[in-house]
């Protein structure tokens, strides 16, 4: 299949370029909303690469979970808490930056060595026509424990969210009240009340 292979190669190139560009954009953009939208781009191009690997179910799940749920939630969080604040210069910020460089460098070295060590053999096994049934079989046999653990984790986070959402007691923040009232009043000349 000459044409099919060519199309695959070109698609792989385009998808990788898109993914790398979008990922760089996520990191480098100053506007956090752009970063969040580009994150969706990264996930979608990743789904495309899954399709190239004959993993159609995984790619659809990638779009559904990461683009449809995770990314939308991130966007929600950003848009509901869209507070513009100027950066304050921190003291000793070089320590943080140095730490970041060390951690990122370590991660890069680790991943680089992994990618150098891995043989990257192209599998000769014929891809399955449908990957849905084997995935389900794996989930319920040899990967049962991680699968159930993941669902327990999700259940825990759901219960936590419900508890947070219907918290009955209101924490009495006496100190916070005056500041919120200040921020809610409109900038106008203070009036004298009639009773005074």
């Amino acid at each position: 299949m000459q044409i099919a292979e060519g199309v695959q190669l070109v698609t792989f190139g385009i998808l990788s370029l898109l993914m790398l560009g979008a990922a760089l954009g996520v990191v480098l953009f100053a506007n956090i909303v752009y970063s969040a939208f580009l994150l969706g781009g990264v996930f979608i191009s990743m789904a495309g690469i899954y399709i190239l690997l004959n993993a159609d179910f995984v790619s659809a799940a990638q779009i559904l979970v990461y683009v449809g749920a995770v990314n939308v939630l991130i966007l929600f969080a950003i848009m509901l808490v869209n507070k513009r604040e100027d950066f304050k210069p921190l003291k000793n910020s070089w320590i943080r930056q140095g730490m970041t460089v060390v951690v990122c460098g370590g991660l890069f070295a680790l991943l680089g060595s992994v990618s150098l060590v891995t043989p990257w053999k192209i599998s000769t096994v014929m891809p399955l026509a449908s990957s849905t049934v084997p995935i389900a079989k794996h989930f319920f046999t040899d990967f049962l424990l991680p699968f159930e653990l993941a669902s327990v984790l999700l259940l825990m986070s759901m219960v936590g969210a419900i508890i947070l959402a219907r918290r009955d007691f209101v924490p009495d923040t006496v100190t916070g009240i005056t500041s919120t009232q200040d921020s809610l009043t409109l900038p106008e000349r203070p009036r004298e009340l009639a009773g005074k």
Partner: peptide
């Protein structure tokens, strides 16, 4: 494709 309806649900989540 074998993932038919699932693909539709995934796409509509974009």
């Amino acid at each position: 494709i074998n993932t038919g309806v699932f693909l539709w649900i995934a796409l509509s989540s974009i």
